[in-house]
């Protein structure tokens, strides 16, 4: 009698558990599919200026992301057309290399003052970002044109003196 009941419950429980297992697997597969396709579709190489300049032709029409140091005297902005151009100089992409250079502020300064550092001209159409200034760290996303100018859809800036633990004494003058 008791065995009968036990057999019955397992028999009933089994397909149910299967159903839930299958349901879970379907969801899991859908989620994985979404993540994998979205990752491959939207992957952008995050490169340094040097890497962009070296690979130029190999990059083709890919959307890439480049970081570099803004060279102050190259910033041009036309408030009529909202056309913004500036040049970024190569700086190391690796945090430990930046540390070696003495922090982000120092790494940027070194990059901007090094005439041999590879440089890249950036074109962007839109409002001039508040954080764009000489010796800011720029992260630009867009495509490299055939003319060697980088056409950015998005520009981001980081100002090391603002948030880094830089000596405050000089910071007010450094800007």
């Amino acid at each position: 009698m008791t065995t009968q009941v036990a057999v019955n419950t397992t028999a009933r429980a089994f397909p149910k558990r299967w159903k839930f297992l299958v349901g879970t697997l379907v969801i899991l597969a859908a989620v994985l599919y979404l993540i994998v396709t979205a990752t491959t579709e939207n992957a952008q190489y995050y490169l340094t200026v040097e890497e962009v300049v070296e690979r130029q032709t190999a990059l083709g029409d890919r959307i890439i992301r480049v970081s570099g140091a803004v060279v102050g005297e190259t910033i041009r902005y036309d408030p009529q057309t909202l056309e913004l151009t500036f040049t970024i100089a190569h700086m190391p992409g690796d945090p430990s290399e930046i540390d070696e250079a003495g922090g982000l502020a120092a790494a940027i300064r070194a990059a901007v003052n090094n005439p041999d550092a590879p440089r890249l001209r950036i074109y962007y159409k839109g409002p001039k970002p508040d954080l764009l200034r000489p010796e800011a760290a720029a992260i630009v996303t867009g495509r490299l044109g055939e003319d060697g100018v980088f056409y950015a859809d998005e520009v981001l800036f980081k100002c090391p003196t603002r948030y880094d633990e830089a000596p405050p004494a000089g910071a007010a003058q450094e800007g």
């Binding site: 979404l34 993540i35 396709t37 979205a38 990752t39 579709e41 939207n42 992957a43 952008q44 190489y45 995050y46 490169l47 992301r65 992409g93 996303t141």
Partner: peptide
């Protein structure tokens, strides 16, 4: 270093 931008997050 490869990043995925906002489109990745929107899509997923």
């Amino acid at each position: 270093r490869i990043t995925v931008g906002p489109p990745y997050f929107d899509k997923v």
